[in-house]
């Protein structure tokens, strides 16, 4: 289709092979599914654990707040790649042996939970103080206040941030290839080392990422306005 664009005299080493491309697409699509599963599971961990981190930073105990705050800062300012290695290699030394899959999803989930805790915190802090006072006046318990009053109002402003990190976690899954999780880059590397052709595999991986993350970003924007309308904001 684009053969006219790549004349041999321009790029002598560039030879896109369509037959080969169709051959590797099924393998890459399978790997795409793995990538989505890894990102989804990691995100689920991050959503739940991030909420705990956010609530812990709001607790009355100064020590707890300080420790969690420092932990979040530490995780946010060190490379995910290094954290993946750390959990995967140090775990067995202290008696926790995890498969690459589990270890990878836990690491990426914990990493992003620190980012999500900041998003939750911002959302919770955006709820006006009067709402808390009104809930107290109605004799609601803290749990009830969070569940019925604060969290529903904290979610809409948090959605853009939560959505960005969903796309972010998806784009960070290639790092799991270093411990042998069979996601897109891992598969592309395997294909490349079998045939010594990297052009098609890496280019397709890039296209697959674009094809998934651009619509996801649009979907998140639509979802945010949907939630806002639902809650009458």
């Amino acid at each position: 289709m684009f053969d006219w664009l790549f004349k041999d005299e321009w790029f002598p080493k560039f030879d896109w092979n369509w037959g080969y491309t169709w051959e590797i697409i099924p393998r890459l699509l399978e790997a795409t599914l793995n990538t989505i599963i890894a990102a989804g599971a990691g995100y689920a961990i991050a959503l739940v654990f991030g909420l705990f981190l956010a609530l812990a930073q709001r607790s009355k105990s100064r020590a707890l707040t300080f420790i969690v705050r420092e932990l979040v800062e530490f995780v946010r300012s060190t490379p995910l790649l290094l954290q993946i290695f750390f959990i995967f290699y140090v775990g067995p030394q202290v008696g926790i042996t995890l498969s690459p899959w589990v270890s990878g999803m836990i690491t990426i989930g914990l990493h992003y939970s620190c980012y999500l805790s900041e998003v939750y915190r911002g959302g919770i802090e955006s709820v006006p103080k009067g709402q808390w006072e009104a809930a107290t006046a109605l004799n609601m318990s803290t749990l009830q206040t969070y569940k019925r009053v604060v969290i529903p109002q904290a979610i809409p402003p948090a959605i853009p941030g939560m959505g960005n990190y969903l796309v972010g976690i998806f784009k960070d899954t290639p790092m799991l290839s270093v411990i042998g999780v069979a996601e897109l880059i891992h598969t592309a590397n395997a294909i490349g080392s079998e045939t010594w052709r990297y052009l098609e595999a890496y280019t397709l991986v890039g296209i697959i990422f674009l094809a998934l993350s651009l619509p996801a970003a649009g979907f998140i924007r639509a979802f945010e306005s949907f939630v806002r309308r639902k809650l009458g904001m």
Partner: peptide
């Protein structure tokens, strides 16, 4: 959109392994 829509690792590999094919 291209650089925000794909992974840094994919971009790095592409620049390192594929760009040489373009000379």
């Amino acid at each position: 959109e291209i650089f925000r829509g794909t992974s840094l690792l994919v971009q790095l590999y592409w620049i390192f392994f594929v760009l040489p094919l373009f000379g």
